[in-house]
Amino acid sequence: MNSAENYIPILFQAGVAIGFVLISILGAHYLGPRLKGTNKDKNFECGIENEGNARTPFSVKYFLTAILFVLFDIEIVFFYPYAVNFREFGLEGFVAVLMFVGVFFLGFFYVLKRGALDWDK
């Protein structure tokens, strides 16, 4: 049941999606009016002058969230093969997964206690 043919329709769909995106972007580009001007082309800053580079450093919390996401997401990935074969593994597999979840919780608890998830501080 799994063959290359099963994936071909996805290509169709991707083609349709790309087509739509291209048409709308290009269409809007040629249909709409174009006006240029130094002030007009500035970034939107609620009417005040632009100040410095927009790509300024922001709170490290966001980085932390991204890093933690990568870690926890990859731990979740481990659950997928287990979930699929869950019944075959039986009790022994379940105990193993309990240990895995335990480690997961250890890490989670550590992160929690160290304040990585405290956004109100």
Partner: peptide, 29 residues
């Protein structure tokens, strides 16, 4: 379709187009 297709002067032109396209593309497929 008929509004002005505005691009800020100091934007990354290519990525500026890619952003919305990607969102639409992904949601469609």
């Amino acid at each position: 379709f008929f509004k002005e297709d505005f691009t800020p002067a100091n934007a990354e032109k290519f990525l500026f187009v890619i952003g919305p396209s990607l969102v639409m593309f992904i949601s469609l497929i």
